[in-house]
Simulated scan of single mutants.
Amino acid sequence: MSRPLVADIDLEALRHNYCLARDLAPNSQTVAVIKADAYGHGAVPCARALEDLAPALAVASIEEAAVLRDAGISVPILLLEGIFEPEELEQVDRLGLWMTVHSEWQVEAALSFQPRKPIPTWLKVDSGMHRLGFPPARAETIWWRLQAAPDKVANLHLMSHFATADALQPAYFQQQMRTMTQLSEHLGAPICLANSPATLAWPEAHGSWNRPGVMLYGSDPLEAANDASRALKPVMTLRSRIIAVQELATGEPVGYGGRWKARRPSRIGVVACGYGDGYDRHAIDGTPVLVEGQRTAIAGKVSMDMLTVDITDMPEVGIGSSVVLWGKADNGTLLSIDEVARHCDTISYTLLTGILPRVPRRYQEARA
Protein backbone atom coordinates (compact mmCIF):
# COMPACT_ATOMS: atom_id res chain seq x y z
CA MET A 1 0.00 0.00 0.00
CA SER A 2 1.33 3.45 -0.90
CA ARG A 3 1.54 6.38 1.49
CA PRO A 4 -2.04 7.56 1.99
CA LEU A 5 -1.51 11.30 1.45
CA VAL A 6 -3.16 12.61 -1.75
CA ALA A 7 -4.49 15.88 -3.11
CA ASP A 8 -7.87 15.25 -4.73
CA ILE A 9 -8.66 17.85 -7.40
CA ASP A 10 -12.34 18.34 -8.26
CA LEU A 11 -12.36 19.75 -11.78
CA GLU A 12 -16.13 20.13 -11.77
CA ALA A 13 -15.78 22.46 -8.77
CA LEU A 14 -13.16 24.41 -10.74
CA ARG A 15 -15.63 24.84 -13.59
CA HIS A 16 -18.36 25.87 -11.14
CA ASN A 17 -16.13 28.58 -9.67
CA TYR A 18 -15.16 29.84 -13.10
CA CYS A 19 -18.81 30.04 -14.15
CA LEU A 20 -19.58 31.94 -10.94
CA ALA A 21 -16.87 34.49 -11.78
CA ARG A 22 -18.14 34.76 -15.34
CA ASP A 23 -21.76 35.15 -14.33
CA LEU A 24 -20.98 37.86 -11.79
CA ALA A 25 -19.76 40.01 -14.68
CA PRO A 26 -21.94 39.23 -17.70
CA ASN A 27 -20.65 42.22 -19.65
CA SER A 28 -17.00 41.25 -19.18
CA GLN A 29 -14.83 38.48 -20.53
CA THR A 30 -13.12 36.35 -17.90
CA VAL A 31 -9.52 35.20 -18.18
CA ALA A 32 -8.72 32.25 -15.92
CA VAL A 33 -5.49 32.72 -13.99
CA ILE A 34 -3.60 29.42 -13.79
CA LYS A 35 -0.11 30.64 -12.90
CA ALA A 36 2.03 28.76 -10.35
CA ASP A 37 0.87 25.40 -11.71
CA ALA A 38 -2.74 26.51 -11.31
CA TYR A 39 -2.10 27.48 -7.69
CA GLY A 40 -0.73 24.02 -7.01
CA HIS A 41 -3.61 22.15 -8.65
CA GLY A 42 -1.86 21.23 -11.92
CA ALA A 43 -1.86 23.71 -14.79
CA VAL A 44 -2.46 21.28 -17.64
CA PRO A 45 -5.45 19.39 -16.15
CA CYS A 46 -6.98 22.68 -15.00
CA ALA A 47 -6.46 24.30 -18.40
CA ARG A 48 -8.08 21.33 -20.11
CA ALA A 49 -11.04 21.57 -17.73
CA LEU A 50 -11.51 25.27 -18.52
CA GLU A 51 -10.56 25.61 -22.18
CA ASP A 52 -14.13 25.24 -23.45
CA LEU A 53 -15.31 27.92 -21.00
CA ALA A 54 -12.52 30.49 -20.75
CA PRO A 55 -11.72 32.74 -23.74
CA ALA A 56 -8.17 33.13 -22.36
CA LEU A 57 -5.83 31.86 -19.66
CA ALA A 58 -3.15 33.77 -17.75
CA VAL A 59 0.26 32.68 -16.46
CA ALA A 60 3.34 34.40 -15.10
CA SER A 61 6.01 33.41 -17.61
CA ILE A 62 6.94 31.98 -20.99
CA GLU A 63 7.92 28.71 -19.31
CA GLU A 64 4.43 28.28 -17.85
CA ALA A 65 2.84 29.11 -21.21
CA ALA A 66 5.07 26.68 -23.09
CA VAL A 67 3.97 23.80 -20.85
CA LEU A 68 0.36 24.50 -21.82
CA ARG A 69 1.12 24.80 -25.52
CA ASP A 70 3.13 21.55 -25.43
CA ALA A 71 0.07 19.89 -23.88
CA GLY A 72 -2.09 21.04 -26.78
CA ILE A 73 -3.83 23.97 -25.10
CA SER A 74 -4.67 26.36 -27.92
CA VAL A 75 -6.69 29.14 -26.28
CA PRO A 76 -5.01 32.56 -25.89
CA ILE A 77 -2.55 32.80 -22.99
CA LEU A 78 -1.67 36.10 -21.36
CA LEU A 79 1.78 36.63 -19.81
CA LEU A 80 0.97 38.62 -16.68
CA GLU A 81 4.55 39.80 -16.19
CA GLY A 82 5.37 40.00 -19.87
CA ILE A 83 8.79 39.06 -21.17
CA PHE A 84 11.94 38.94 -19.03
CA GLU A 85 14.37 39.52 -21.91
CA PRO A 86 13.90 40.77 -25.49
CA GLU A 87 14.79 37.40 -27.01
CA GLU A 88 11.57 35.95 -25.59
CA LEU A 89 9.54 37.91 -28.11
CA GLU A 90 10.26 35.27 -30.72
CA GLN A 91 8.58 32.68 -28.47
CA VAL A 92 5.67 35.02 -27.77
CA ASP A 93 5.16 35.31 -31.51
CA ARG A 94 5.66 31.61 -32.25
CA LEU A 95 3.40 30.40 -29.41
CA GLY A 96 0.69 32.97 -30.18
CA LEU A 97 0.73 34.55 -26.73
CA TRP A 98 -0.62 37.80 -25.37
CA MET A 99 1.70 39.89 -23.25
CA THR A 100 1.78 42.57 -20.62
CA VAL A 101 4.21 45.50 -20.82
CA HIS A 102 5.08 47.23 -17.55
CA SER A 103 8.61 48.60 -18.11
CA GLU A 104 10.28 50.94 -20.58
CA TRP A 105 12.64 48.28 -21.90
CA GLN A 106 9.71 45.96 -22.67
CA VAL A 107 8.05 48.70 -24.71
CA GLU A 108 11.25 49.36 -26.65
CA ALA A 109 11.71 45.65 -27.28
CA ALA A 110 8.13 45.27 -28.50
CA LEU A 111 8.45 48.23 -30.86
CA SER A 112 11.78 46.95 -32.20
CA PHE A 113 10.50 43.45 -32.94
CA GLN A 114 8.62 42.50 -36.08
CA PRO A 115 6.19 39.68 -35.30
CA ARG A 116 4.53 37.52 -37.90
CA LYS A 117 1.28 39.06 -36.76
CA PRO A 118 0.60 41.83 -34.22
CA ILE A 119 0.85 40.73 -30.58
CA PRO A 120 -2.15 41.42 -28.30
CA THR A 121 -0.72 43.66 -25.60
CA TRP A 122 -1.93 44.87 -22.21
CA LEU A 123 -0.34 48.02 -20.82
CA LYS A 124 0.20 47.82 -17.05
CA VAL A 125 -0.53 50.99 -15.07
CA ASP A 126 0.62 51.58 -11.50
CA SER A 127 -2.57 52.95 -9.98
CA GLY A 128 -1.36 52.56 -6.40
CA MET A 129 -0.03 49.04 -5.87
CA HIS A 130 3.51 50.37 -6.53
CA ARG A 131 4.79 47.08 -7.80
CA LEU A 132 4.67 46.87 -11.61
CA GLY A 133 3.45 49.39 -14.14
CA PHE A 134 3.76 52.92 -15.41
CA PRO A 135 2.49 56.04 -13.64
CA PRO A 136 -0.73 57.20 -15.31
CA ALA A 137 0.84 60.18 -17.09
CA ARG A 138 3.61 58.04 -18.54
CA ALA A 139 1.13 55.31 -19.43
CA GLU A 140 -0.77 57.76 -21.62
CA THR A 141 2.35 58.55 -23.65
CA ILE A 142 3.19 54.86 -24.06
CA TRP A 143 -0.40 54.06 -25.00
CA TRP A 144 -0.18 56.34 -28.01
CA ARG A 145 3.23 54.97 -29.00
CA LEU A 146 1.88 51.44 -28.98
CA GLN A 147 -1.28 52.46 -30.81
CA ALA A 148 0.93 53.93 -33.54
CA ALA A 149 2.44 50.51 -34.29
CA PRO A 150 -0.50 48.41 -35.53
CA ASP A 151 1.83 46.03 -37.35
CA LYS A 152 3.39 45.09 -34.00
CA VAL A 153 0.72 45.59 -31.35
CA ALA A 154 -2.93 44.53 -31.43
CA ASN A 155 -5.94 44.62 -29.11
CA LEU A 156 -4.31 47.09 -26.74
CA HIS A 157 -5.81 47.17 -23.24
CA LEU A 158 -5.07 48.94 -19.98
CA MET A 159 -4.64 46.85 -16.87
CA SER A 160 -3.84 47.49 -13.21
CA HIS A 161 -3.90 45.63 -9.92
CA PHE A 162 -5.74 46.44 -6.70
CA ALA A 163 -3.91 46.50 -3.38
CA THR A 164 -6.98 46.38 -1.09
CA ALA A 165 -9.96 45.03 -3.03
CA ASP A 166 -10.31 42.32 -0.36
CA ALA A 167 -10.61 44.82 2.51
CA LEU A 168 -13.73 46.11 4.23
CA GLN A 169 -12.39 49.68 4.12
CA PRO A 170 -12.86 50.80 0.49
CA ALA A 171 -11.03 54.16 0.44
CA TYR A 172 -7.80 53.05 -1.24
CA PHE A 173 -9.62 50.74 -3.64
CA GLN A 174 -11.83 53.65 -4.67
CA GLN A 175 -8.78 55.85 -5.18
CA GLN A 176 -7.29 53.29 -7.54
CA MET A 177 -10.62 52.95 -9.32
CA ARG A 178 -10.81 56.71 -9.92
CA THR A 179 -7.30 56.75 -11.33
CA MET A 180 -8.00 53.96 -13.79
CA THR A 181 -11.50 55.11 -14.73
CA GLN A 182 -10.25 58.59 -15.58
CA LEU A 183 -7.35 57.24 -17.64
CA SER A 184 -9.54 54.72 -19.46
CA GLU A 185 -12.16 57.31 -20.32
CA HIS A 186 -9.52 59.82 -21.44
CA LEU A 187 -7.90 57.30 -23.78
CA GLY A 188 -11.08 55.49 -24.80
CA ALA A 189 -9.27 52.33 -23.71
CA PRO A 190 -10.68 48.92 -22.79
CA ILE A 191 -9.62 47.89 -19.33
CA CYS A 192 -8.85 44.89 -17.11
CA LEU A 193 -8.84 45.53 -13.37
CA ALA A 194 -10.79 42.96 -11.39
CA ASN A 195 -8.88 40.25 -9.56
CA SER A 196 -10.71 37.67 -7.43
CA PRO A 197 -11.90 40.01 -4.64
CA ALA A 198 -12.95 42.71 -7.08
CA THR A 199 -14.77 40.14 -9.20
CA LEU A 200 -16.66 38.97 -6.11
CA ALA A 201 -17.36 42.27 -4.38
CA TRP A 202 -16.90 45.31 -6.64
CA PRO A 203 -19.04 45.28 -9.81
CA GLU A 204 -17.80 48.78 -10.67
CA ALA A 205 -14.36 47.23 -11.26
CA HIS A 206 -15.65 44.81 -13.88
CA GLY A 207 -14.08 45.85 -17.17
CA SER A 208 -13.74 44.51 -20.68
CA TRP A 209 -11.84 41.66 -19.01
CA ASN A 210 -11.66 40.36 -15.45
CA ARG A 211 -8.90 38.04 -14.22
CA PRO A 212 -9.96 35.90 -11.23
CA GLY A 213 -7.30 33.71 -9.69
CA VAL A 214 -7.59 32.15 -6.24
CA MET A 215 -11.39 32.18 -6.25
CA LEU A 216 -11.30 29.67 -9.11
CA TYR A 217 -9.82 27.18 -6.65
CA GLY A 218 -12.49 27.71 -4.01
CA SER A 219 -10.72 30.07 -1.64
CA ASP A 220 -12.54 33.16 -0.41
CA PRO A 221 -10.18 36.18 -0.68
CA LEU A 222 -12.50 38.65 1.06
CA GLU A 223 -12.02 39.93 4.60
CA ALA A 224 -15.75 39.33 5.11
CA ALA A 225 -17.55 36.75 3.01
CA ASN A 226 -20.49 37.79 0.84
CA ASP A 227 -23.18 35.76 -0.91
CA ALA A 228 -20.99 35.29 -3.99
CA SER A 229 -17.92 34.08 -2.11
CA ARG A 230 -20.02 31.71 -0.02
CA ALA A 231 -21.02 29.98 -3.27
CA LEU A 232 -17.43 28.96 -4.05
CA LYS A 233 -16.62 25.24 -3.96
CA PRO A 234 -13.25 23.85 -2.79
CA VAL A 235 -11.27 22.32 -5.63
CA MET A 236 -8.46 20.67 -3.65
CA THR A 237 -9.07 18.23 -0.82
CA LEU A 238 -5.86 17.25 0.94
CA ARG A 239 -6.54 13.88 2.50
CA SER A 240 -4.58 11.22 4.36
CA ARG A 241 -5.06 8.58 7.07
CA ILE A 242 -4.06 7.90 10.64
CA ILE A 243 -1.03 5.60 10.62
CA ALA A 244 -0.52 5.19 14.39
CA VAL A 245 -2.25 5.91 17.70
CA GLN A 246 -0.56 6.89 20.95
CA GLU A 247 -2.09 6.69 24.44
CA LEU A 248 -0.89 9.52 26.70
CA ALA A 249 -1.21 10.03 30.44
CA THR A 250 -2.05 13.45 31.85
CA GLY A 251 0.93 15.79 31.47
CA GLU A 252 2.73 13.86 28.74
CA PRO A 253 3.95 15.88 25.72
CA VAL A 254 3.66 15.31 21.98
CA GLY A 255 6.19 16.10 19.30
CA TYR A 256 9.25 18.32 19.01
CA GLY A 257 9.72 20.64 21.96
CA GLY A 258 6.73 19.16 23.78
CA ARG A 259 4.59 22.17 22.89
CA TRP A 260 1.30 20.31 23.47
CA LYS A 261 0.82 18.48 26.76
CA ALA A 262 -2.10 16.25 27.65
CA ARG A 263 -4.45 17.86 30.16
CA ARG A 264 -6.19 14.50 30.64
CA PRO A 265 -5.61 10.92 29.53
CA SER A 266 -5.51 11.37 25.75
CA ARG A 267 -5.42 9.51 22.45
CA ILE A 268 -3.24 11.01 19.73
CA GLY A 269 -3.57 10.09 16.06
CA VAL A 270 -0.45 10.26 13.90
CA VAL A 271 -1.27 11.44 10.36
CA ALA A 272 0.86 10.88 7.24
CA CYS A 273 1.35 14.53 6.28
CA GLY A 274 4.00 17.07 7.21
CA TYR A 275 5.94 20.10 6.12
CA GLY A 276 7.92 17.88 3.74
CA ASP A 277 4.64 17.60 1.84
CA GLY A 278 3.96 21.33 2.04
CA TYR A 279 1.69 21.43 5.09
CA ASP A 280 2.61 24.56 7.02
CA ARG A 281 4.94 23.98 9.98
CA HIS A 282 3.54 27.13 11.61
CA ALA A 283 0.19 25.45 12.28
CA ILE A 284 -0.65 26.08 15.93
CA ASP A 285 -2.26 23.70 18.39
CA GLY A 286 -5.96 23.83 17.65
CA THR A 287 -5.61 24.05 13.87
CA PRO A 288 -8.72 22.24 12.58
CA VAL A 289 -8.60 18.82 10.95
CA LEU A 290 -11.38 16.44 9.94
CA VAL A 291 -11.10 12.82 11.05
CA GLU A 292 -13.82 10.57 9.62
CA GLY A 293 -15.65 13.79 8.79
CA GLN A 294 -15.58 15.08 12.38
CA ARG A 295 -13.72 18.17 13.50
CA THR A 296 -10.73 17.81 15.74
CA ALA A 297 -7.42 19.66 15.95
CA ILE A 298 -3.67 19.47 15.63
CA ALA A 299 -1.86 18.70 18.89
CA GLY A 300 1.87 19.39 18.76
CA LYS A 301 4.29 20.73 16.17
CA VAL A 302 4.07 19.58 12.57
CA SER A 303 7.00 17.30 11.62
CA MET A 304 8.52 16.73 8.19
CA ASP A 305 6.44 13.66 7.35
CA MET A 306 3.80 13.54 10.07
CA LEU A 307 1.48 15.60 12.20
CA THR A 308 -0.51 14.67 15.27
CA VAL A 309 -4.17 15.23 16.12
CA ASP A 310 -6.22 14.84 19.29
CA ILE A 311 -8.68 11.94 18.91
CA THR A 312 -9.46 11.53 22.61
CA ASP A 313 -13.18 12.10 22.09
CA MET A 314 -13.31 9.82 19.04
CA PRO A 315 -13.21 6.27 20.43
CA GLU A 316 -14.26 4.81 17.09
CA VAL A 317 -11.24 6.34 15.33
CA GLY A 318 -8.02 4.39 14.90
CA ILE A 319 -5.33 3.31 12.46
CA GLY A 320 -6.62 3.71 8.91
CA SER A 321 -9.21 6.35 9.76
CA SER A 322 -9.62 9.00 7.06
CA VAL A 323 -8.23 12.49 7.57
CA VAL A 324 -8.96 15.70 5.65
CA LEU A 325 -6.46 18.52 6.16
CA TRP A 326 -8.63 20.87 4.10
CA GLY A 327 -11.44 20.43 1.62
CA LYS A 328 -14.42 18.10 1.61
CA ALA A 329 -14.78 14.91 3.66
CA ASP A 330 -16.65 11.87 2.38
CA ASN A 331 -19.66 12.75 4.57
CA GLY A 332 -19.86 16.20 2.95
CA THR A 333 -18.35 18.15 5.84
CA LEU A 334 -16.24 21.06 4.59
CA LEU A 335 -13.05 22.40 6.11
CA SER A 336 -12.15 25.70 4.50
CA ILE A 337 -8.53 26.18 3.51
CA ASP A 338 -8.98 29.80 4.55
CA GLU A 339 -9.73 28.70 8.13
CA VAL A 340 -6.65 26.47 8.15
CA ALA A 341 -4.54 29.32 6.76
CA ARG A 342 -5.60 31.64 9.57
CA HIS A 343 -4.35 29.12 12.14
CA CYS A 344 -1.02 29.05 10.29
CA ASP A 345 -0.79 32.87 10.20
CA THR A 346 -0.74 32.78 6.42
CA ILE A 347 -3.09 32.82 3.43
CA SER A 348 -4.61 30.08 1.33
CA TYR A 349 -2.35 30.94 -1.62
CA THR A 350 0.76 29.78 0.27
CA LEU A 351 -0.87 26.52 1.37
CA LEU A 352 -2.14 25.64 -2.10
CA THR A 353 1.03 26.53 -3.99
CA GLY A 354 3.17 24.94 -1.29
CA ILE A 355 1.96 21.36 -1.76
CA LEU A 356 5.05 19.58 -3.03
CA PRO A 357 5.45 17.18 -5.97
CA ARG A 358 5.71 14.09 -3.77
CA VAL A 359 2.00 14.51 -2.98
CA PRO A 360 0.08 12.79 -5.81
CA ARG A 361 -2.69 14.77 -7.47
CA ARG A 362 -5.77 12.68 -8.18
CA TYR A 363 -8.22 14.26 -10.60
CA GLN A 364 -11.98 13.97 -10.52
CA GLU A 365 -12.87 14.79 -14.09
CA ALA A 366 -15.40 17.42 -14.98
CA ARG A 367 -18.74 16.16 -16.23
CA ALA A 368 -19.38 16.64 -19.92
Rank of each mutant, 00 (worst) to 15 (best):
W326V: 02
L11H: 01
T30P: 02
V302F: 03
P136A: 11
V44Q: 06
L132R: 00
I142T: 06
G128R: 07
S321L: 11
E64P: 06
S348K: 04
D330N: 13
S303K: 08
R295Q: 07
K328Q: 15
G133I: 01
S196P: 04
A32Y: 00
M314E: 02
D10H: 11
A171M: 09
D285V: 03
D338Q: 11
A165R: 03
G40Y: 01
D330A: 13
A231Y: 03
W209D: 00
A154S: 15
L325V: 06
G276M: 07
A139G: 01
L232M: 11
I73L: 11
W209S: 00
A149N: 04
L325F: 02
P197M: 08
A58K: 00
P221S: 12
F162P: 02
L307P: 02
P76D: 09
A154N: 02
A201V: 07
G96L: 06
R264H: 11
G213Y: 02
R131Q: 12
N155R: 14
R48M: 11
A139W: 02
L335H: 01
L50P: 05
I311Q: 03
M236F: 01
W105F: 12
V44H: 11
D277V: 01
P265Y: 01
E247Q: 12
L78G: 01
W260G: 02
H41G: 05
M314G: 00
D280E: 07
K233I: 11
A231C: 12
W98V: 01
A154R: 15
P170H: 12
L334I: 15
T237A: 15
C19I: 07
S61V: 01
K261P: 00
D8L: 15
E88G: 07
N27P: 00
P76R: 08
L50G: 01
M180F: 08
T30M: 11
S74I: 09
T179Y: 10
Q364P: 03
P315C: 13
L20W: 04
Q246E: 15
R22A: 13
V324L: 05
A36F: 12
V324Q: 02
A299R: 03
F113T: 09
A149E: 04
P221M: 12
V302T: 08
W122P: 00
A49C: 12
G257T: 12
D8C: 09
M306A: 10
A13T: 07
M159S: 07
E204W: 11
L193S: 01
I347F: 06
G72P: 03
Q174L: 13
T179L: 14
P150S: 10
N195F: 04
P265L: 04
Y39G: 05
L132I: 07
A13H: 05
P170K: 08
L187F: 09
L356M: 10
I243S: 10
S196M: 04
L156M: 10
G293Y: 06
T312H: 06
E204N: 13
V309K: 00
A54C: 13
G258V: 12
T296F: 11
T30Y: 00
H102C: 08
